[in-house]
Design a protein around this nucleic acid. Structure first.
Ligand SMILES: [Mn+2]
Ligand SMILES: [Mn+2]
Ligand SMILES: [Mn+2]
Ligand SMILES: [Mn+2]
Lengths: 248, 248
DNA sequence: CAGCAAGATTAGCGTAGTCTAATGACCGTC
DNA sequence: GACGGTCATTAGACTACGCTAATCTTGCTG
């Protein structure tokens, strides 16, 4: 039924109110969630993120980003710093982490329950994350036994928004001869991920950097095999340094 | 990236093109899918459906419905009959059935895999049906072993849009003393469904109408128990008539 | 068959989100 | 310390949907 809402004093913006009515708790529009999520991924809770960076990442024009940032600021989900840069507020961060949580749980579900390939699951999660209710999400999580990581090694925030703090470095940042364990893979480009998968460059596998040329060519060993890649090829592979010592 | 699309000759409406780019095959906007789905449910592929009926069912104002019907007609998904009534075209029907298929598969999934209560899954499916890609849907279907019916007894169309033809009648249409089997339950109102569930009025159960008063009070027997309900209370329960004969 | 009421449509707005083109602000460099 | 280029914002449009209020149409019904 459509309600004959004659009165109605909008305290929060219509879009947010509508979303809140639909979901259990307040749920934002798809765009807002995406902006917040990307801001969080770009560490906008610790440093201010430039408009242009955000716009490129979201594949929107700079004016669109400016526009949406103005709304989000009006809604107190972020603050503007010098040159228009954005910094998440506490509530902005909270909503962002919730979105990240949904995304990662969905990716995990698509792989573990539906059997899809982890190199190809990001896009679907990107859409579904805006459609799952808290109820469905909880059921998903229960069915999977409360996983701690998504298929790309990214930690899944718990219901309270807590994330483990990890000390990871890009594979390319290792010194020659240094050993490490692959922990997280940038998951937005299926082709690169499929490539990494073929090379055995997956979360949990041990790597050793053999050589890092000045011209950006990296040689490394993973799972006993020798590989060579350009900086582009391994950008987005995050590893955990192995304390120097035992050579098995 | 945002593409510097200087050219671009829109043959199909932007909304549809955008959706098509996102999904595998052409996928419509959420509104369009909902309109088509409801039209199909109201048998707009066999008879013309009035604007007002559609508007009420979709909980939008008549002008909104008129507006959307104009678009869908422009896109050749339906034709307008006398008094603005709408009738689905072949392609409109096809897209509608695809939407119905997604909805029913999702409901089944929510119940069978996620363990949610069937009296309460319709709303979630209503949202998710617009977000699942063909790939995810196929995986869902595979995991469940290609179910033929949703939790409310509604047949699930196959990939070709085929549906079994059933001869069902409302429970209230039975004659006094007549036996039947519950086949499909109207699934849009959780409270009524929860009630039916408590009474054992679920797909597959045998019923016998005991008495149908002129004043709209129905007495019936289901699973050995006697129940009484008003017409409102059993509206939406569709049964299959039992051929007269053996009284087990 | 005139007239009325139900039902459909038009007119005019509003929000959400996006775009391009033009303009404004800033920062580092020479 | 003026100047040029990068980056952000403003200005103006557009699509997709909604809504209300006003107007048309039409099918009865008396
Ligand atoms: Mn992802
Ligand atoms: Mn991931
Ligand atoms: Mn349903
Ligand atoms: Mn159903």
């Amino acid at each position: 039924m459509f309600r004959p809402s004659r009165v109605a004093v909008p305290s929060r913006p219509p879009a947010v109110r509508a979303a809140a009515a639909r979901g259990r708790l307040a749920r934002l529009t798809r765009s807002r969630e995406d902006y917040l999520k990307v801001l969080f991924e770009l560490d906008a809770d610790t440093r201010a993120v430039a408009v242009g960076v955000l716009a490129r990442r979201l594949a929107v024009s700079p004016p669109s980003a400016t526009n949406m940032l103005a709304r989000l600021a009006r809604e107190r989900l972020l603050t503007r710093a010098a040159r228009g840069a954005a910094r998440l507020t506490a509530s902005g961060r909270r909503l962002a982490v919730e979105a990240v949580r949904r995304h990662r749980l969905l990716e995990t579900f698509l792989v573990r329950v539906l059997g899809l390939d982890w190199s190809d699951v990001h896009e679907d999660a990107e859409v579904l994350e805006h459609a799952v209710s808290d109820r469905v999400l909880a059921a998903l999580e229960r069915v999977m036994g409360h996983p701690g990581e998504d298929p790309h090694g990214h930690p899944i925030p718990d219901r309270l928004g807590r994330l483990p703090r990890r000390a990871l470095v890009p594979l390319a940042a290792l010194g020659a001869g240094e050993r490490a364990v692959v922990r997280e893979l940038e998951d937005r480009e299926p082709r690169r991920m499929a490539h990494w998968k073929r090379e055995g460059l997956v979360p949990g596998s041990a790597v050793r950097l053999l050589r890092a040329d000045a011209d950006g060519v990296f040689a490394f060993e993973v799972g006993g095999r020798r590989c060579v890649a350009g900086r582009e090829g391994i950008d987005g592979v995050l590893v955990e340094r192995r304390r120097a010592g035992g050579r098995p």
